[in-house]
Amino acid sequence: MKPKVYITRKLPGAIIQQIQEKCDVRMWEEEEVPVPREVLEEEIKKVEGLLCLLTEQIDRSLLEQADNLRVVANMAVGYNNIEIDEAKERGIIVTNTPGVLTETTADLTFSLLMATARRIPEASDYLRNGKWETWSPMQLTGQDIHGATLGVIGLGRIGEAVAKRAKGFDMKVLYHNRSRSQDAEKELEIKYVELEELLKESDFVCVLTPFTPETENMIGHEQLALMKKSAILINTARGGIVNEDALYEALSNGEIWAAGLDVFKEEPVSLDHPLLTLPNLVTLPHIGSASIATRMKMADLAATNLLKVLEGEDAPNNVT
């Protein structure tokens, strides 16, 4: 008998077919709308495998209903949507999809940095709204990227990839991480510093660290106050790492020049969120890995992880 699997969002047909060849598959058929919690609670009781997205909270109350569940394949690098300790205690293997989205997310991070520094969304709106009547010396002026100092918080795969891009712009790169990487320092010509020094010295600060209890609200009032008034904060990691109330105050009061966010603490972000009222904030709807090729690779890797565990083999990317 084929193992039963539930997929929490409609995926490309080739991925579904790959899983259907070996499993009895049920799937939430919507592409844009997350599976309702009550539906997931019913489905989780019946299956041995779950392929889910960051939009699903795989918490204690859900896992308590999953008597037959053997594997949760998360289609993401991060897995803060899953109560890992609870899964581990129940012998449920959790997998993720690292590696395949590194370069794409680094592209987006640097794109967001550039768009924020040069006020590109604001300039586009300026033209489209009929405000461009003449050229003037300081019209829509931004911050230079070439030759500036970039501070990278979190030197994982994506952090290193962003640092590589920065070198092409002749940027000086500082980094802060839980541990130093002397190999990366030599290869990328980057310098390890403590967080306080990074914040004080950087023209751009990119948050790329994983979201953990230790990194929650890592960037708050105190940290933002250390940054240059001309500095720009970029966050493409997780929203909870940056205290949004503190960021709003820093942007409103001119403590820092601008910020670019691909992530928020609560997603999707409410349209009445105070941050969305600020002209010096560039926002995106969590599209760090959103290229066609990369999302296909992520779905394929999630499917491979799922099937390997159900076949009794080691998955390529175990978290537990």
Rank of each mutant, 00 (worst) to 15 (best):
M27E: 12
I58G: 02
D85S: 13
I92D: 06
T55E: 13
E29D: 15
V47I: 12
E31Q: 13
L62I: 05
N80L: 02
R90A: 07
L63G: 04
G91T: 12
V94T: 10
V39T: 14
Q57F: 00
V25K: 11
L50D: 02
L62R: 03
R26V: 01
D67R: 14
E38L: 05
E43H: 06
P34M: 06
N81T: 05
L51I: 01
N74K: 11
E38W: 03
W28D: 08
V72C: 11
P36G: 03
L40P: 11
E31T: 14
A66M: 07
L63C: 01
V25E: 12
V72H: 07
E42C: 01
N68W: 08
E42F: 00
G78D: 10
E21M: 07
A66S: 05
C23N: 10
Q20T: 10
L54F: 01
V77S: 04
E83I: 03
D59M: 07
G78M: 08
E89V: 00
E89P: 02
I82S: 03
A87V: 07
A66W: 05
E29I: 05
I19N: 07
R60C: 08
G49K: 00
I58E: 04
E38R: 08
M27H: 12
Q20C: 10
M75I: 09
E48V: 06
N80D: 15
A66H: 09
G91Q: 11
V71F: 09
L62T: 06
V72M: 09
L54D: 07
G49Y: 04
V39H: 10
I19Y: 05
G49F: 04
R37D: 13
Q20R: 15
C52L: 07
E21W: 03
E32M: 12
E48G: 05
K22M: 02
M27C: 15
R60V: 12
E48W: 00
N68V: 02
E30V: 00
R70F: 04
C52H: 06
W28I: 10
G91D: 09
V77K: 03
K22R: 15
I93R: 11
V35G: 03
D85R: 13
V25H: 11
E89K: 15
E41S: 04
E64M: 13
R90C: 05
L51V: 06
I82Q: 11
G49I: 05
K45N: 01
W28G: 10
L50E: 06
D85C: 00
I93Y: 12
D24I: 08
D59R: 13
R70Q: 15
I44E: 04
I19E: 03
K46E: 15
L53M: 14
E29Q: 15
L40C: 09
C23V: 08
A76W: 06
E86P: 01
E30S: 14
I82L: 01
E31L: 10
E41V: 03
E38I: 01
N74Q: 14
L53N: 05
K45R: 15
D67N: 13
E31M: 10
Q20F: 01
N80K: 05
K88C: 02
L62G: 02
V47W: 00
K45T: 08
L54I: 13
D59W: 06
E21G: 15
N68R: 15
C52W: 04
K22Y: 08
Y79M: 04
D67C: 10
E30M: 07
E43D: 11
R37C: 11
K46R: 15
E38A: 12
L40W: 06
V25T: 02
E89Q: 12
L50G: 06
L62W: 10
C52R: 05
L54K: 08
E86G: 01
